[in-house]
Design a protein around this nucleic acid. Structure first.
Lengths: 194, 194
DNA sequence: GCACGATAGTTGTGAAAACAATAATCAGAG
DNA sequence: CTCTGATTATTGTTTTCACAACTATCGTGC
């Protein structure tokens, strides 16, 4: 298995006490740093493989996330369950709200929608009440490509994390949620004071 | 606090059972997916603030990581502890090895070194024994900028994760290490078979 | 010695992200 | 009504990233 790497590239073997023995050459300077580096490395490796999967059909992880969001809002008002109605009247979402709902905060939603529009997976519609806002909504082609992805995505999740128990996964989720608690507050602060 | 977001942008409140009640509109399709999305979101938020810190002195998280690696190898052979000797004879590392040691795997080490060289934080030296390999090593300016960062980095780690106990942080690290176990094997596989 | 494949690094190109500046529209105060 | 400030989206610019093609060098076997 891949050992944990410290920020200076030294590897941290499984023997926990080793770092303390060596003393000066201990790989991590604090438990916070160790957790952070593990976080970044794990996210990069897993995300990388998803990027590769998504790219087979021309979308990135960000644009895939947007498509999922748009499918979600389109389904909320659908008459029949599982159906998304006529594209002409399909529910959409203002670009700013899309940005707020995304997994990884991204400032530039406009260009992501641009790409989805070029791929014919999404489209724009101007709001009549407030002509500043643009609604983006998912097209039938977008729904199709999402459906094609559905099984592969769940399968890749299983491949990545299927060896972990349900308890471990939930515990991991809880710890991660707690880990970003402070940073989110910090973000809200700086945003509010400016 | 910021609620967990599902891939379709629906927020997951603190009441755990709610998703099951609603049934069709449950935010996550599997515990694996929930853990993955928490992982990506947390990494993006924390990493973003580090990027902002590093950018104040012209480096990115990747180039910062490289500088730490180069400082590490430079210190390994230093005569006096804490000293790094003469830049002319300072130990370096081949570019490929730098790539292997990095926290987040990056294919394009050449251009990262290019930038560090422009910033005068690193330099190149050709290997005499094997003229294909280039050693990169850290300059005195690089050591200085790293030293400037040291306290700020630890401080930001504290701000982000200081509210978590040592046990929680270690547990988080363990779970993250386990989480990327399979993906690392997979990566090795695909790399070997090609 | 020379051809061969393998390895290390560079370069080229197109996609993606970050950040700031701009244009259009709205809402409220006077 | 009109001015002002706020909001929404777009555009421009620069940097960064990902992937593939290319060059130079090495080591091996003939």
């Amino acid at each position: 298995m891949a050992p944990t790497k410290a920020i200076d590239g030294k590897t941290n073997g499984t023997t926990k006490g080793l770092a303390a023995q060596i003393g000066k050459a201990r790989p991590f300077q604090s438990p916070e740093q160790e957790a952070y580096l593990n976080l970044i490395r794990t996210a990069a490796i897993l995300s990388n493989q998803f990027e590769r999967l998504f790219k087979t059909r021309g979308v990135s992880e960000s644009t895939y996330n947007i498509l999922c969001i748009l499918r979600g809002v389109a389904g909320l008002q659908g008459a029949a369950p599982g159906k998304y109605g006529d594209p002409a009247t399909r529910a959409g979402l203002p670009l700013t709200e899309i940005g707020e709902r995304m997994i990884a905060p991204v400032p530039d939603v406009t260009r992501l929608i641009d790409r989805l529009e070029q791929l014919t997976f999404a489209a724009r519609r101007r709001c009549d009440k407030d002509r500043r806002v643009i609604y983006a909504y998912i097209t039938n082609a977008g729904l199709n490509v999402l459906r094609d992805f559905d099984d592969e995505v769940l399968e890749l999740h299983k491949q990545h994390l299927g060896h972990m128990s349900k308890d471990e996964l939930e515990h991991l989720s809880d710890l991660l949620e707690k880990a970003r608690q402070r940073a989110s507050e910090r973000r809200a602060e700086t945003a509010a004071t400016i």
